[in-house]
Design a protein around this nucleic acid. Structure first.
Lengths: 333, 333
DNA sequence: CGGATCCGTCGAAGCGCTTCGACGGAGCCT
DNA sequence: AGGCTCCGTCGAAGCGCTTCGACGGATCCG
């Protein structure tokens, strides 16, 4: 089943079929319809290899996925799915690269013309892949923001704004002691961009509002222990910002066991929540939008000199049942 | 940078370079070395599209990933990573297909010669993709086992054996009341193979050993509630089999809060555990091996008529600190 | 010592598509 | 009415690789 079969069936030349498919030259309506009918009837699909050889376009993009131990996989996966979906909408497929191969994998897919561009996830502040990308002459978009963004195209949630929004929300409700339950320590150690930026937004806002605020990294499985430690303090925090999805429910449970629920305790979660989560006030992480934006920007770069720059998506604070106006001293003063 | 550049640099013909690369004809050692040197020096990589056009092989396989809400994503991801790693070891790349496109995606990548084969994850007992696969004349391997395996190649963990092994282990330790905490109800509703088979292995072994045994599906976030319900019963189960990764820690916490820890309570987990989990007795889910096996079988089918058939990997029960011989009545009788 | 054999290499013919230039015909202008 | 332009279509030349048959030269055998 080749293009010449379609051409014969429709009574035109192969080049005409190609132009119908690509739309790169005008074709009369009657011819177009005939050709499309033949394609449909015969169930024709262009041979991807032949196409990429002739057109120097593979219609495939690479997605470099992190998959470190400390990355919260479901979140990464939502990005991945949204990238695939968006790519398909632009008639592209997605080749999966894992970190395993390192930068070599990028070289390989780039210089064998396997992909038209690449999307890199989980970017660190000082990311080893960034120089490779710069040297590679391959259109690329980062999901995340490294320290030096010169010449790069980046997309991310505005995590600093997210961290700040949580503080403002809690401060508005009268909370003066806020604990920030963060990612596992290793995430901060390797200076992951999103985690750092969230914390800096949180700290800046806390200073601005004059609230007591402290950062508590939280490894997987230690949420309950952390909660118990917080509960033993002189001044138990009344506001909790949780930037650590799997710890949300254990934390809530632990505080509830100690009799602390809204309005005595207010909790804001940052990030997507598992289905069936309680109704929480949270800052949503629009993974779908980030993925779609990244693909859109990559497509711009693939056909034409799409501009570099950093796109930060505004966080959206959604009020749920886990935060409430704080009764007591603040109000009665 | 084309094959002819390499050929000129090495002083041979393009076909010789090709034969060096493919090994399909014998080449003298001196020539081979010269060619490989030139390739290295010039940093040559064959053009993937040209190669797939001429050789009718793309060196890419498709991976159909589920990504339903109720699938435990980290587990799915481990399969995916192991598939990618194994595929690279066979000099193949992996194209990511999500369920979004449905069977149409399979048609597309197959008939455009984009991939040499496909691996399908998260197979249901009655899976709609199976007939498509049968009709498609595309080498494929399923991770999971549908009801009718005629003509298919399937790989999976032997979940029935896993469920049984847990029962035997607990029964050997003297437990007579065993609760099986399972996947979310929806997983059973859509008759996911692995979940059904685990339960049937569990039930058969329980009958065989004459222990009291009951199945409790458990939706995400409801682990604690379930634990509390179990604790209110007349006969609180002393053995717990947990086939629901995210619920393990909350369950343990809840039972511990009620003062139940080994040896009064023994817990066996089925499946991979998050890093940093407590030291549990568990049946390991060898995701890495399953992925590698699937890829190996697919490669066999791609070059040559690799046999159909179902490969079940033996579960391995690893003793940890969460199970212990039960004191009390059983022993003193 | 001549013919059969084998090994290592080469040349050329595609693989199926895109795309450039060309070309005939219709429509426009003067 | 003649010359232009423009539109829709075609033919042919690649894109970079693999692979088949061919072909010298060395090796072996009788």
């Amino acid at each position: 089943m080749r293009i010449s079969d379609v051409a014969r069936h429709a009574g035109v030349s192969p080049s005409t079929v190609s132009y119908v498919l690509s739309g790169k030259r005008s074709i009369s309506d009657s011819t177009r319809r005939r050709v499309l009918d033949s394609i449909e009837t015969l169930g024709y699909r262009p041979h991807a290899g032949a196409r990429s050889l002739a057109s120097r376009r593979s219609n495939v993009i690479a997605l470099v996925i992190p998959l470190r131990e400390d990355v919260h996989v479901p979140v990464a996966m939502r990005f991945a799915v949204s990238v695939v979906t968006a790519a398909r909408a632009h008639d592209h497929d997605v080749l999966l690269l894992t970190q395993g191969e390192g930068p070599e994998g990028l070289h390989r897919v780039a210089s064998s013309a396997m992909v038209d561009g690449v999307i890199v996830m989980d970017v660190e502040t000082e990311d080893a892949r960034v120089p490779v990308l710069r040297s590679l002459d391959l259109p690329s978009v980062l999901i995340g923001v490294p320290a030096d963004t010169e010449g790069l195209t980046c997309v991310d949630l505005d995590f600093a704004a997210a961290g700040a929004a949580c503080v403002h929300h809690l401060a508005d409700l009268g909370h003066e002691d806020i604990a920030f339950v963060g990612q596992p320590p290793s995430v901060y150690d390797r200076r992951t961009g999103f985690a750092e930026r969230t914390v800096s937004g949180f700290e800046a806002a806390a200073r601005e509002r004059g609230v007591r605020a402290a950062l508590h990294p939280c490894a997987s499985g230690e949420a309950r222990a952390l909660a118990e430690e917080l509960l033993r303090r002189d001044r138990v925090p009344t506001g909790l910002i949780v930037h650590n999805e799997p710890s949300v429910v254990p934390l809530l449970d632990a505080f509830a066991d100690a009799g602390r629920t809204p309005p005595d305790l207010s909790v804001v979660a940052i990030g997507p929540l598992p289905p069936g989560s309680p109704d929480l006030t949270r800052v949503d992480l629009p993974a779908e939008e980030v993925g779609a934006r990244a693909v859109g920007l990559l497509m711009d770069k693939i056909d034409g000199p799409g501009g570099a720059g950093v796109t930060l998506l505004e966080p959206r604070l959604v009020r749920g049942g886990s935060t409430a106006h704080r009764p007591g001293p603040t109000v009665s003063l």
